[in-house]
Computed example of a mutant assay.
Amino acid sequence: MRHPGIRTPRTPRPSRAAATAAAATAAAAVLALVPATTAQAAPAPQRAEAPAASTASAAWAPGGNAAILGIDYGTWQRDVATVIDGARPYVEQRLANAPAGQKPAIVLDIDNSSLETDFHYFWTFPTPAIAKVRDLVQYAHAHGAAIFFVTARPGIIQSLTQYNLKAVGYPVTGLYVRDLPDLFDEVSAYKTAKRAEIEARGYTIIANIGNKQSDLVGGHAERTFKLPDYDGKLS
């Protein structure tokens, strides 16, 4: 109890520097008591990187319309490879034996025939190439074949489509899109007419590649190769 008129001496507070020094000394003392095995176990939290890798892989997982429809990307890739692996020996031999002066050409559809359209979200741009198809096309072009794309895409996106094809590694000799008059034709009739137009320019179409019958019917190609569309589910 404090008495009036009598001052109790105040215990002086340690300076901030002294408090910091004391804290540091105490921390050092605690660390000195920690067993070596505990200190060596400190890097263990690095194991948390594993989920991050899984998350990154998931970010690159295919999506889009195919995922909604339940079409497995790996299965589709294998089915595509079966067709293209069968086409490649023919293309190699046909180009190796092309008569002098002949202008061989390959015609391709685009969506799910050259680009992985339905396996990516619509905002993905450029849409990735189908690697097996691109490799075959690059080989053919390097060995003298012209490469034409005939698509049902509207003319309004022609420049974007051409940019996409070139950006993912396709050589492009020509790109045919549907202009306003073509929109009133059946897709098969429109594509047949464009192949006939390519032939009229002096080319011999040695292979026509697409994933729908409308890409392939109508003639004007020595051989046709159909990629999977799973009963019309892929565009």
Rank of each mutant, 00 (worst) to 15 (best):
M1A: 12
R2E: 08
R2S: 14
H3R: 09
H3W: 01
R10H: 01
A18R: 13
A18D: 15
A19P: 00
A22E: 14
A26P: 01
A27Q: 10
A32E: 08
L33I: 04
L33T: 15
L33N: 04
V34C: 08
P35K: 08
A36C: 05
T37S: 14
T37Q: 12
T38L: 14
T38G: 10
A39T: 09
A39D: 00
Q40R: 08
A42Y: 14
P43H: 10
A48Y: 12
S54A: 14
T55D: 14
A56Q: 10
W60R: 05
A61I: 00
A61K: 14
G64T: 05
A66C: 06
A67N: 06
I68K: 13
G70E: 15
G70M: 13
Y73G: 10
T75H: 14
W76N: 06
T82L: 13
T82W: 01
T82S: 13
I84P: 02
D85F: 07
D85Y: 09
A87P: 02
R88D: 15
R88N: 11
P89D: 08
Y90A: 00
V91H: 06
V91Y: 05
V91W: 04
Q93P: 02
N97Q: 15
N97P: 00
I110W: 07
I110D: 06
I110Y: 04
S113T: 11
L115T: 06
H120R: 13
F122E: 01
F125E: 12
P126E: 03
K132F: 01
V137T: 08
A140V: 09
A140G: 11
H141P: 05
A142Y: 01
H143I: 01
A145K: 02
I147S: 05
F148V: 04
F149L: 03
V150N: 02
T151Y: 04
A152C: 09
A152K: 03
R153E: 12
G155Y: 12
I156C: 06
Q158Y: 11
Q158D: 15
Q162A: 09
Y163L: 10
N164W: 01
L165H: 04
L165C: 07
A167E: 03
V168E: 13
V168P: 05
Y170S: 02
L180S: 10
D182H: 13
F184R: 06
D185C: 14
V187S: 06
K191N: 05
T192S: 10
T192A: 15
K194G: 02
R195V: 11
R195T: 03
A196D: 14
E197Q: 15
E197F: 12
A200T: 09
R201C: 04
Y203S: 01
Y203I: 00
I205N: 03
A207Q: 05
A207M: 13
I209W: 04
I209K: 02
G210A: 06
K212F: 07
G219F: 10
H220V: 00
E222I: 10
T224Q: 09
K226M: 13
D229P: 03
G232V: 00
G232Q: 03
L234H: 03
S235K: 01
